[in-house]
Amino acid sequence: MEATPLLAAERIDKRFERRLDFAGRLAVKLGAAPGNETVHALDGVSLAVRRGEVLGVVGESGCGKSTLGRILAGIMPASSGRILWQGADRDRLTGTERRTVKLAVQMVFQDPASSLNPRMRVADIIGEAPLVHGQVTRAELGDYIDTILRDVGLDPAMKQRYPHQFSGGQRQRIGIARALAVEPQCIIADEAVAALDVSIRAQIINLFDELRQKRDLTYLFISHDLGIVRFIADRVVVMYLGRVVESAPTSALFAAPNHPYTVALLAGAPRLEDRKRAFAAIEGEIPSPLNPPRGCHFHPRCPHVMARCREEAPRLSEIAPGRLSACHLNQA
């Protein structure tokens, strides 16, 4: 058995319910509508992040990857299931322990323009949390902020400016600095480089890598971009419509994807090596999470669909050491 993971999710469920308005409730009473609409965003998701690794989470819109990131970061409660920090149930911790653990996981968001308060100066954006949590004194704060700004590649002389005075890449550096300010052990990056231009994106990816070595960080890197995940992640988790369909070490996954969805995803991504290729993508739309298909969620689009897939959801099971996949084909 390997060491206890730093951060783990155990059978996490997340359901979002839309409260009905008066007309809706009336319709339910009269038997004309089926009741509250529920989006099953996460359906029994389990994963483990080991200390020091970069775990990539990939999937298309609506697969629940951002919801998972928010629940792991502790900024959104799960409907059921447990989050374990070094083996201990995070929701049962109390007092200072609870606070330390909560600060240990921080998040970096996709859009730095909407995740930074436009009315706060950079020094306050970065300095507020460590000051409130008593990690630095007011006297030390100035130097502390300067150190972090230098770490993320910004000039400390700019700390009295507002977010709008920075470019997109610089704003993302501020977002990273804010996450680092409370000395976290694990950073959850939700599409953190998706909004950036190619040349700036490379700078930020390199920054993530530098910080990991310098500060001994663990990353959960959520992205829809397979090229980035392939480059940065040690292991990859693939999600589809609220479920984990496959997880594997990065090189193994890209060399030989197992789940038909992973196969389709890798085949569909455009590559620099393509020349006048005939694009032929997997058919069908991503189903609505309001009304997911029965059985395996991927079955309406799967080229290998069998009768069993329409009825029974496949379990995520080990297909090789360190590799999990949820597909009935593996049991056939």
Partner: peptide
Amino acid sequence: DVTIQGQILS
């Protein structure tokens, strides 16, 4: 999304 992009390109 990637799989939808593939469809449009095709």
